[in-house]
Design a protein around this nucleic acid. Structure first.
Length: 716
DNA sequence: AACTTGTCAATTTTT
DNA sequence: TTGACAAGTT
């Protein structure tokens, strides 16, 4: 039973005004720590209590984590699992995927279509650039794949089709490369039956605009739409939202222009700055009361951000007490800086502060290295946000690639990954020959492989590819004759085609996904290979455990949804998942994160390190490089760096440390450092300066030394 | 097919 | 100075 009333009295007046808003467009300008998630969750609960069916409510976020948190908090408010489950709460990409999946026939995509994540995209693009590079261009120069990918991504999100792409300026060689490679890239994606991340937004927008019936259906589906972190939306995401609310304009967006830190990724701050122009008649509510930080910390944040023009303009205030001064610590070197921070963290912990109450934030990942060394030295437990993730591990990706090929034989990227793994005698020459022959006949690589071994030598009971429905395999009759293959290669291909087809038909006939995968693992003797390739027995076991972890995760998913479709969906969702939500071991540890990664988080104690010119603001903002995607005006815009600084400061609840070094070794040689201009924007009376000259050099007893003295004491 | 060597560059990366 | 990547070597 739904609660008929939600207690909006727990909200402050502007929060309540936003949460009880019913019809029409509303912009909620929510400062850091002002309870924006609260407003959204209360509004959803309020709508449900008012009798709105959960199916008619949609809330969009940027991260899976934010989406989960939102769903949990709504569930807590309404105490109704069924209603909560029926809500649409998810990321933009998950929403796009939902649309593509239900409309896939209109798009001519097979059931097992793939979603390519960034590393897949880079794989495709590297391949596209290889063929292009060998043809022409100055010698054999190497080009930065990421720089090209960033350009393609921006173009896609601006709805620039591959053949419409034009270099913005002739001097930009990366624009020229992009013009040539973008069409090839897109062609390869489609031939693999794959969408990339950008397609997940852009393709639904195109479809909804092109097909009136589909467009109408989706515009009617949700009667109330909410968007979180609206300052981070790009043009395509805005278009999608516009289409969803085209009929009724019941749109509530929540965001903070001062926390817009992703414009380099295509986020368009005008979406939030010009919201009332985009949605005429929009109301605006400002949330300026901060429940997170002390007055001292908030003053510093306000002072820094006030140096930006082009803002909606908010001033955060707080009821929390004045609090301690912000420590501005100056070290001689980056090593001293890290040493001091590690010791300070250790001291805080000894004084009763939990490790997980403490975060260290930095502008670029490279800064974490020294710090890790020092923390390890002192035995301080820590987690790094954004490190290598579970599903990125090679052995896990290998198994996933087999599953992908079985579900979608057109997925050439996955096929190439497993074609000769574990080694089965299919060398580069063989692959090239078959690929060339296949391309010449407009066949896929998979068809080429099947054709190469069809006819003679079929092993008993093999049924090559028989499980694949016509839809997935549009030309089942087509064979590719590549002449005679050497014995080893031929046997290898037979084995590959066999194991993949077996896996495909097992999944088709409804065999449990985990069981089918286990059979595959045995067929390819994966664990033998892992044992042989690992340097030690423990290393091998760890990798085997990783594969077992994948099976566990798959099993949990397959319990909720069953069959081949479920597996396809599982794999697609896997691409949308960054940090595996399976390893929730981040409790009780100090958090190390980039400033970008810290957005949306809060900690009682925060260290912002490396507050120096060329780190924050970053050198790349001061001196743009050839690979940079944005125009010079945008690239040299210091205000985004300032917002980054603002985001960092506002993460701190009670105590903030700002640290810097006077010299730092960069690219091999020591260089003098200048304090960050943002540091100078904070009034002196909020800061307590600490010169770490002597302090940092003090000898720190290592564990060994400490134990030595401890033992002496015992012996006494 | 695993090692070795040379070259080039050096942010941020919610999905 | 480190690392990633790709081509060359055993």
């Amino acid at each position: 039973m739904l609660r008929s009333v939600v207690d909006l009295a727990k909200l402050n007046p502007p929060q309540r005004e936003a949460a009880s808003h019913i019809g029409g467009p509303l912009l909620v300008l929510a400062g850091a720590g002002s309870g924006k998630t609260r407003v959204i969750t209360y509004r959803i609960a309020h709508l449900l209590a008012g009798g709105i069916p959960p199916q008619a409510i949609c809330a969009v976020t940027f991260t899976n984590k934010a989406a989960e948190e939102m769903r949990e908090r709504v569930a807590h408010l309404v105490q109704n699992r069924t209603a909560t489950r029926a809500l649409t709460i998810g990321t933009f990409h998950a929403l796009g995927l939902q649309i593509l999946r239900s409309e896939r026939k209109a798009l001519g995509m097979p059931r097992g279509f793939a979603v390519y994540d960034q590393s897949d995209q880079m794989g495709v693009l590297r391949e596209a650039m290889r063929s292009f590079r060998s043809m022409e261009r100055d010698g054999e120069r190497r080009f930065d794949v990421k720089a090209v990918l960033a350009r393609i991504s921006l173009a896609k999100n601006a709805f620039v089709a591959p053949d419409e792409y034009r270099p913005r300026n002739v001097a930009d060689e990366y624009d020229a490369i992009t013009q040539e490679v973008y069409p090839k890239y897109q062609e390869m994606l489609r031939s693999c039956a794959a969408f990339d991340f950008d397609d997940l937004i852009v393709e639904p927008v195109r479809l909804l605009a092109r097909d009136a019936e589909v467009g109408r259906r989706w515009a009617e589906k949700f009667r109330f739409v909410m968007v979180d972190e609206f300052q981070d939306t790009n043009r395509a995401q805005l278009r999608l939202v516009e289409q969803l609310v085209a009929n009724h304009k019941n749109l509530v967006v929540v965001g903070d222009d001062d926390q817009s830190i992703y414009s380099w990724r295509g986020a368009d701050p005008t979406n939030i700055l010009k919201f009332d122009t985009l949605f005429p008649g929009a109301r605006t509510v400002k949330l300026e009361q901060n429940y997170r930080s002390t007055k001292t910390i908030l003053s510093a944040a306000n002072e820094v951000i006030a140096n930006n023009t082009q803002r909606h303009g908010k001033t955060l205030w707080s009821n929390v007490g004045g609090g301690e001064a912000i420590v501005h610590a100056v070290a001689q070197t980056a090593e001293d800086e890290a040493k001091w921070i590690a010791r300070e963290i250790d001291r805080l912990n000894k004084d009763g502060r939990a490790w997980s109450d403490i975060a260290v934030m930095y502008r670029s990942n490279i800064q974490a290295k020294v710090l890790e060394d020092e923390l390890r030295q002192l035995g301080v437990p820590y987690v790094m946000y954004g490190g290598q993730q579970f599903f990125e591990r090679k052995e896990v990706k290998d198994v996933i690639a087999y599953l992908r090929v079985a579900l979608n034989p057109r997925d050439e990227l996955a096929l190439r990954r497993v074609i000769n793994y574990p080694a089965r005698g299919i060398g580069a020459t063989t692959i090239d020959r078959i690929a060339t022959a296949a391309t010449a006949r407009h066949a896929t690589l998979w068809e080429g492989l099947r054709g190469a071994v069809s006819g003679t030598g079929t092993l008993p009971g093999m049924g090559l590819g028989s499980s694949l429905r016509e839809e997935d395999d549009p030309n089942p009759e087509r064979t590719v004759d590549v002449g005679d293959l050497r014995g080893a290669a031929r046997n290898g291909i037979l084995e590959l085609v066999h194991v993949v087809s077996e896996l495909g038909s097992a999944l088709e006939s409804g065999t449990d996904a985990v069981a089918a995968t286990r059979t595959l693992i045995e067929d390819i003797r994966l664990y033998d290979d892992l044992r042989a390739a690992s340097s030690s027995a423990t290393a091998a076991q760890r990798r085997i455990d990783n594969v077992e972890g994948l099976l566990g995760s798959l099993g949990r998913f397959a319990e909720k949804q069953k069959g081949r479709e479920a597996l396809s969906e599982y794999l697609r969702r896997l691409s949308l998942e960054t940090s595996s939500d399976d390893d929730k071991d981040d409790g009780k540890k100090v958090v190390l994160t980039t400033l970008h990664g810290a957005k949306g988080l809060e900690f009682p104690v925060c260290f912002m390190i490396g507050l120096e010119e060329e780190l924050l603001p970053h050198l790349r903002t001061l001196q743009p490089q050839a690979t940079d995607v944005n125009d010079v005006d945008h690239a040299t815009d210091i205000s985004e760096e300032r917002r980054l600084c603002y985001v960092g400061i506002t993460r701190a609840q009670k105590k903030l440390y700002l640290t810097r070094a006077c010299t730092r070794i960069m690219r091999g040689s020591a260089r003098p450092r200048v304090p960050s201009r943002f540091l100078l924007e904070i009034p002196d009376d909020l800061l307590e300066v600490r010169d770490l000259g002597e302090e940092a050099r003090q000898k720190v007893p290592t564990d060994e030394v400490r134990n030595f003295f401890a033992n002496l004491a015992l012996d006494d």
